[in-house]
Nucleic acid binder design. Structure first.
Length: 483
RNA sequence: GGCCCCAUAGUCUAGAGGCCUAGGACGCCGGACCCUCAUUCCGGAAACAGCGGUUCGAAUCCGCUUGGGGCUACCA
């Protein structure tokens, strides 16, 4: 039975790196008919950020990632799903290791340890624990504990041989055991350190495959030491390539949007973001790039995961978003753009028709909302470049003539509008464009947008004529607000 | 510093010894279409990090160099 997990630390929002890790775990589980577990890694209480857990869950859900077991799933079999609530088990096993002599109490103070490390660095040696407390007698150790001296628990790690990580993506990665010191497994407050807790929790939750970011590869041997000391069978490991910022550094705030919620706020369709993330470090066997979750589940395998770190590219994300903007059912886009409509929208013209007309020209939902606006609100100002180009000498009279004829046009549809413009341009002896551009500017305040006849047909006679007349007045009274 | 991972165009990638004159996608440049923009369609520039091996033959295997990244905490 395949069982995988995503174990985020609730220290903030869901970032794209974590989202990608969660996604790959989710896809792997579904592909193999296994279970996907969500575990909250809240070992270090001091680093907790309130609301962070809720944000994580919401972020994952919004991407279409769902889990079979987690802190919010009633009656899930391997609970609790918050590491902080599994403390008893960690303590129990730490005691067992202490009793069997595989771990020991270390009474060194942080200052002492720092001084030790500094001394080693001075000598050009790698900073590691010097082992001062490793050979304290059980009696001495017990005496100091009873006396109330503060201590941490360290695991005795092997000094010889090597530890090999069998990684499903990278193959065999060998580490010389001499590079590891006796690391801390329980802090002075008798709570576990990450490397200790994960190993226990993954085992206790019957995790079969540990799929996580590459930053964990170097720590995997430490976790293996824990498995070995506890006589736990090892899970399979797979370390995903990292996602880097455009300057090849680790992703951080200064690189712009990195959290899922930020992309959402910018009008990125989350399904598109998921699809984009899928392509960061994985490629489909048939070369397809637009894949929904179902497609992805079907073709996702670990052997097609890349070993090289990927740099995320906003441009491609935007392209992907546009693909979804155009390919999703209109009703979906209508629903998605709703939160971005910060202005009142009337019954007519129907929003779905407006969306259908505009979506091809919008990259994000924010842009789409901006374009939709003109269908419900007359322009208050006009683009400067457009005014200079299209609101010249004859503009007012032409627009006036247009308004007069449009008021009589029957029926009000694309073809008849086109015929009207053809006729008038012929009469005036000007190019049709000389009528079209001023009209667009008068009606929308902009120089770009949908084809004029589609636009006007949808906008309706009343609004069109009214806006035309308003523009005429403004031009004549030189009361044009230019932007 | 030590240890580990990685290395195909600006970016995401295909490629698992001959099928590679290195393919696709984003972006970029040029053109067509058009009432503008967008879409679409054509066309173009652009990469196997370097050096040594192995082999009849290497982007693919090995070594070294260089470069990038990660880990090295009583963070996760």
């Amino acid at each position: 039975m395949v069982r995988v997990r995503y174990a985020p630390s609730p220290t903030g929002a869901l970032h794209i790196g974590g989202a990608r890790t969660a996604l790959f775990n989710f896809l792997f589980a579904r592909h193999h008919g296994g279970a996907f577990v969500l575990r909250i890694e809240d070992t270090d209480q001091s680093r907790q950020v309130p609301e962070s857990e809720a944000k994580m869950l919401a972020g994952l859900k919004s991407l279409g990632i769902v889990w079979d077991e987690g802190p919010d799933i009633e009656g899930a079999p391997y609970g609790p799903y918050r590491v902080s609530e599994r403390l008893g088990r960690h303590r129990e096993l730490a005691e067992a290791l202490l009793a069997s002599g595989q771990a020991y109490r270390c009474f060194c103070t942080p200052e002492q340890l720092e001084a030790d490390r500094e001394a080693l660095r001075q000598q050009g040696l790698p900073p590691r624990y010097v082992g001062r407390c490793r050979d304290l007698s059980p009696e001495e150790s017990e005496r100091r504990r009873a006396r109330g001296d503060r201590f941490v628990v360290r695991l005795k790690t092997p000094d010889t041989g090597e530890t090999v990580v069998h990684d499903l993506i990278r193959g065999e990665v060998a580490f010389d055991n001499r590079v590891f010191d006796d690391f801390v497994i329980m802090k002075a407050d008798f709570t576990p350190v990450y490397n200790f807790a994960v190993a226990i929790d993954d085992h206790d939750m019957a995790i079969s495959h540990v799929i996580r970011g590459e930053e964990h590869l170097s720590n995997t041997p430490k976790q293996i030491f824990v498995y070995q000391a506890l006589h736990f069978p090892l899970p399979a490991f797979a370390h995903l390539p990292m996602i880097l910022a455009p300057d090849r550094s680790k992703i951080s705030k200064r690189h712009g949007a990195t959290a899922v919620e930020e992309y959402q706020a910018q009008g990125i369709i989350l399904r598109a973001l998921t699809n984009y993330l899928l392509l960061l470090g994985w490629s489909s066997p048939d070369g397809r790039e637009i894949l929904d979750l179902e497609d992805a589940i079907q073709s996702f395998t670990l052997d097609r995961v890349q070993r090289t770190a990927a740099i995320y590219d906003i441009k491609k994300l935007e392209w992907m978003n546009h693909q979804y903007m155009v390919q999703l059912p209109v009703e979906d886009i209508v629903a998605l753009v709703q939160p971005f409509l910060t202005y009142p929208v009337r019954e007519a013209p129907p929003l779905s028709e407006v969306v259908a007309l505009c979506r091809e020209r919008a990259t994000t939902l924010v842009q789409l909302a901006d374009q939709i606006r003109v269908f419900y609100h007359p322009p208050e100002s006009y683009e400067a470049a457009g005014v200079a180009k299209h609101f010249g000498e004859e503009a007012a009279s032409r627009l006036e003539a247009l308004a007069a004829r449009l008021a009589q046009l029957e029926p009000w549809d694309h073809d008849h509008l086109a015929a009207l413009y053809d006729a008038l341009s012929a009469e005036l002896g000007v190019k049709r464009a000389a009528l079209i551009h001023p009209t667009r500017l008068a009606v929308t305040g902009r120089t770009v947008g949908p084809g004029l006849f589609e636009l006007v047909a949808l906008l309706g006679r009343e609004a069109t004529v009214e806006r035309l007349n308003t523009a005429v007045q403004r031009i004549r009274s030189q009361a044009l607000l230019v932007e």
